[in-house]
Design a protein around this nucleic acid. Structure first.
Length: 669
RNA sequence: GCGCCCGUAGCUCAGCUGGAUAGAGCGUCUGACUACGAAUCAGAAGGCCAGGUGUUCGAAUCACCUCGGGCGCACCA
């Protein structure tokens, strides 16, 4: 709601500046004043104009305030400080509009109908998901929700690297360490006593030791990888069996956190459908990659580093100099990940001239279908949606892969696809690491050196990490204890449902409250907390407001929120809103109206934490309000309805905010 | 060696398209529950915003340098 006021002010002031001073194309800044005493919209524009007009800011501000004339919805304009122009809203008017407005979506001017692809999760299908993967998925999923909130059409992809080294390693484990046949692995997968992804987690760590013991065993990896890539042999079948089972496990894990996908493109299909050959030809034709005939990359097709030609002349012989070139095709003829990623990225923009086949992989409870790429035409009677062909692509990948992501974009540019390159966005974020204390909790021995560090990296290879499902289980167990304490009369099933919602709320908020470039040093105490700045704190604020309405409906069965909202549209609420005495309630209402502004900001800055922080601040203000006002015992019926309306507005804004974070609201807490 | 990120209260972090008194949570200490259920609230203590120089009417925020920490720079992904 607030953003429409902003928009109106922006238009009006721009127009005024043009007429009055002949100033155009000024980047007009609007601020939200730090306190309601300073009004609701602040313009620091006079500071910027001071130089141009050679007058003190205060004088300019005064002039604008006096001559701009009345603005719709604005009560008064006051100059403050060194030259701020502060606008004060007509509170009751704004309140009436807000009472009846939809807060769960943003009504905005027409948006581009172009599709946006968000790729996230992308976990190697060879072991269970860990805490680092959860950060990726939570960020990606919340970003998707934000884009949809702003009216964008979004396609969510989860890329499956089912023919990579990591899958090969686990296959080596099955074939050469535990010596299990394909059938035996299949029954392991079906065994309800075995959590297959956890089993692979341990096996994968064993494979690392296996190689360390005897490095000649690395030839097994190469051989296995080659078989998997080629397909149509027992090893590749085993690889496919394992990868598919692990993908199912990942889908289930993510579903626990309310994360869904539209499509899972697989690397094997990129290979079999010869996406790479197509991209390879394009790259060759455009001279984007060259075949090296000498040097250490002899026999490889490489993409030249931007400055490599000049750098080469300098001291490239010293040990510490690094190669600027990136190998795309190895001397043995196989393609690196980057090469395949260039082909995939081209497909996402609809620039490859090839397409996948598709088959249904999973149907979610709400009927939404998760599709998987395929190398063969599908047998589903229902045609698949049209995938790919986006205008804008976000790749949610941690910052350690920035270099690779740049190469991919560089590839697009070399092919002349500048628009696609400009709209290929690496949604980069910092890793989740483990605090030394956390390692101690996990019973991991750290070297004396590592103990001194602020954090240590998660390592799937070493089996060092917090498994996602284990963490979720732990959170649910803890939440369940609290629920049992408070709601012992509820049926067990209902208790568990609430515990799950609280656990997920806690975890998702924990993963989202940090800004992108902050390393999360994972700590059990912080992740398992339900008090203070946490998801459950916000959920609790909503539950409290729902309790008020539930209780009120018991007293007055005829009561309905719709009726209340309609009445409030016409209610003279000024006496409850105007004046300094009502600043606190007004501040709460104003804050509740700002979700649109904050979510726009969150998308523009690619920072879901903005919404997380907002939701928390709003919940905080609400809890304060809740303590100060006893609503149901309120004797004045008009005032009571007004207070109920405030609760409703805040509740709707909080629910919408939580939904952007992928957090549900429990019935009771 | 080169590149990127981080350095704000005891701890974990917001604030960074320059702006109105630097914020929150945790922890510590004081207080507040007879059902709109305290997973809450109120209050207190706690900061040369790593350091330096510059730009500006104005710098936690921008530029440059220094110091600390992390991550990249594979024919792994």
């Amino acid at each position: 709601m607030y953003h429409t006021i902003q928009q109106r002010v922006r238009e009006r002031v721009s127009e005024f500046l043009k007429l009055e001073f002949g100033i155009e194309h000024l980047d007009l800044k609007l601020e939200i004043p730090p306190q309601v005493e300073f009004g609701e919209v602040a313009l620091p524009v006079a500071f910027d104009l001071a130089k141009r007009l050679k007058k003190p800011p205060r004088v300019i501000a005064q002039h604008i305030a006096e001559t701009i004339g009345p603005l719709d919805g604005i009560e008064k304009i006051v100059v403050a400080g060194g030259g701020y122009i502060n606008l004060y809203l007509q509170r009751s008017n704004f309140f009436a509009l807000l009472s009846d407005a939809r807060l769960d979506q943003l009504e905005t001017s027409p948006r581009p109908s172009d599709k946006v692809i968000v790729e996230h999760t992308n976990i190697n299908p060879n072991k269970s998901a860990h805490i680092g993967h959860l950060r990726n998925a939570a960020l990606g999923d919340s970003f998707v929700r934000l884009l949809r909130f702003l009216g964008r059409t979004v396609e969510v992809q989860n890329y499956i690297d089912n023919t990579g080294v990591q899958v090969a390693d686990v296959v080596v484990g099955f074939e050469h360490i535990v010596n299990l046949s394909k059938d035996q692995v299949a029954s392991l997968i079906d065994d309800p006593q075995v959590k297959f992804d956890f089993y692979c987690w341990d096996l994968y760590a064993r494979v690392s030791h296996f190689y360390e013991e005897d490095p000649s065993r690395l030839s097994l990896r190469a051989e296995t990888l080659h078989n998997i890539e080629r397909g149509g042999n027992p090893t590749s079948e085993l690889g496919d069996l394992v990868a598919t089972a692990i993908v199912r496990a990942h889908i289930a894990t993510m579903l626990r956190l309310n994360i869904q996908y539209d499509l899972m493109p697989r690397e094997s299909d990129i290979l079999h459908l010869k996406f790479w050959e197509k991209a390879f030809n394009l790259l060759k034709e455009n001279g984007a990659i060259v075949l090296e005939s000498e040097g250490k990359n002899r026999g490889c097709w490489v993409m030249k580093g931007i400055e490599s030609t000049e750098k080469d002349k300098q001291d490239s012989t010293t040990e510490e100099s690094y190669d600027e070139d990136k190998v795309i095709v190895r001397s043995n003829g196989t393609v690196t990940y980057v090469g395949k990623d260039i082909a995939y990225q081209l497909w996402k923009f609809g620039l490859l001239g090839k397409n996948f086949f598709y088959r249904k992989f999973h149907v979610y409870k709400d009927g939404h279908v998760l599709w998987m790429s395929s190398s063969q035409p599908g047998t589903d009677p229902e045609p698949s949606p049209r995938f790919g062909g986006a205008r804008e692509v976000y790749n949610v990948i941690d910052v350690r892969q920035a270099y690779l992501q740049n190469i991919v974009v560089q590839g697009l540019r070399a092919l002349g696809f500048n628009d696609a390159a400009d709209h290929s966005i690496h949604f980069d974020y910092e890793m989740v690491a483990l605090s030394p204390r956390c390692c101690a909790d996990l019973g991991i021995d750290l070297s004396a050196e590592d103990r001194k560090r602020p954090y240590v990296e998660v390592s799937g290879r070493k089996g060092l990490g917090v498994k996602a499902d284990q963490l979720i289980d732990q959170l649910i167990a803890k939440a369940l204890l609290e629920v049992e304490k408070r709601h012992s009369a509820l049926p067990a099933q209902e208790q568990e449902r609430i515990a799950r919602q609280i656990a997920v709320g806690g975890l998702r908020y924990f993963l989202l409250k940090y800004t992108l470039h902050s390393v999360i040093a994972f700590d059990f105490d912080e992740a398992l907390s339900f008090e203070g700045e946490t998801g459950p704190y916000i959920q609790y604020a909503v539950v409290r407001s729902k309790n008020i309405f539930r209780k009120y409906a018991e007293e007055k069965p005829a009561f309905s929120l719709e009726g209340l909202r309609a009445r409030m549209r016409r209610c003279p609420s000024g006496k409850f809103l105007d004046g300094a005495a009502n600043n606190e309630v007004w501040g709460l209402i104003l804050l509740a109206s700002q979700l649109g502004v904050l979510s726009t900001q969150a998308v523009a800055s690619r920072e879901p934490a903005v919404v997380a922080k907002y939701a928390f601040a709003l919940a905080q203000h609400f809890n304060n309000f809740y303590h100060k006002h006893r609503i149901l015992p309120e004797p004045d019926p008009e005032r009571k309805e007004f207070l109920l309306m405030v609760v409703d507005i805040v509740m709707r804004s909080l629910e919408a905010s939580l939904s952007l974070l992928g957090i549900e609201v429990p019935e009771k807490m």
